[in-house]
Write a protein that binds this DNA or RNA. Structure first.
Ligand SMILES: [Mn+2]
Ligand SMILES: [Mn+2]
Ligand SMILES: [Zn+2]
Ligand SMILES: [Zn+2]
Lengths: 134, 134
DNA sequence: GTTAAAATACAACAATGTTGCAAATATAAT
DNA sequence: ATTATATTTGCAACATTGTTGTATTTTAAC
């Protein structure tokens, strides 16, 4: 989907920082940390601006974040078709650190202990990605 | 297992901070954030000391950390029987924020995209815990 | 173009992660 | 028990990240 229509859909004004961030996240097919995003942007923006933009995008569901080991937070664009706000799997490469959304994988829902109820499953798979396996 | 023998097993000297932290994490049956751990300790220790102790314990496999949404890191004691360094499931309660280790659950290993190989699966289940469901 | 609402840069501050180093303490050797 | 050595701790300092107020700039609607 075009960047502009994504913003339109969520009643967000079209500003340089927002456009730049969405363009960046859609052009790469992986999840990026805030710093990785920064490096990929065409222009420089204040840290606070990027922070608030990512926050807005998260709240609107335009992006989703992937918590991985090492206290690093990765952000990925959400493909509306896949309902990424719900159950969702990610792959984390131990070699290059890349984080991939695995949109095609469905998560098996395990039996929970008595009294527990679930509404969302998040699976993180650690291993070696395609590039690093070659 | 007794706190002292845990430290012994890993060639770690028996110091107040280490004993206090292990006692805390074994007495509760849930995962705790660094601040929650601090509140439960019998004595006060410097931030750096707690930081280094948690780091040491993580490296030794005495504890493992659970990354959850909101950039918070939870720490839980590792039960040696369950090989918690490998695939492992956790439950995160949306209501009380509690994080539980689900040692009895085995994770179904999904088919990965061509070229990807996995060595560890981490499943985080969000929902409502037993206490909050009552 | 004018105007109101919203986004941005800047600054400030809070929280967390991290390290060097001297003093205190734990263990091992005597 | 005393001493010696290795380790741990507290303190300080600094880095990184998270967060918010506010004046200025920019957007979108009229
Ligand atoms: Mn994803
Ligand atoms: Mn666990
Ligand atoms: Zn890789
Ligand atoms: Zn609960």
């Amino acid at each position: 989907m075009k960047t502009e229509s994504i913003l339109d859909q969520h009643n967000l004004s079209k500003t340089p920082c927002r456009v730049d961030i969405i363009n960046t996240l859609t052009s790469v097919d992986v999840a990026l940390t805030e710093n990785q995003i920064k490096k990929n942007l065409k222009f420089d923006y204040d840290r606070a601006t990027i922070f608030r933009t990512l926050k807005t995008f998260s709240e609107k569901g335009i992006i989703h974040c992937v918590p991985v080991e090492g206290n690093e937070v990765y952000y990925a664009i959400s493909k509306p078709n896949y309902k990424q706000t719900l159950s969702h799997a990610h792959f984390h490469c131990n070699s290059c650190g890349g984080v991939y959304c695995l949109n095609s994988i469905s998560i098996a829902e395990p039996q929970l202990p008595e009294g527990f109820s679930a509404n969302k499953y998040e699976l993180t798979i650690n291993g070696c990605c395609k590039k690093c396996n070659e």
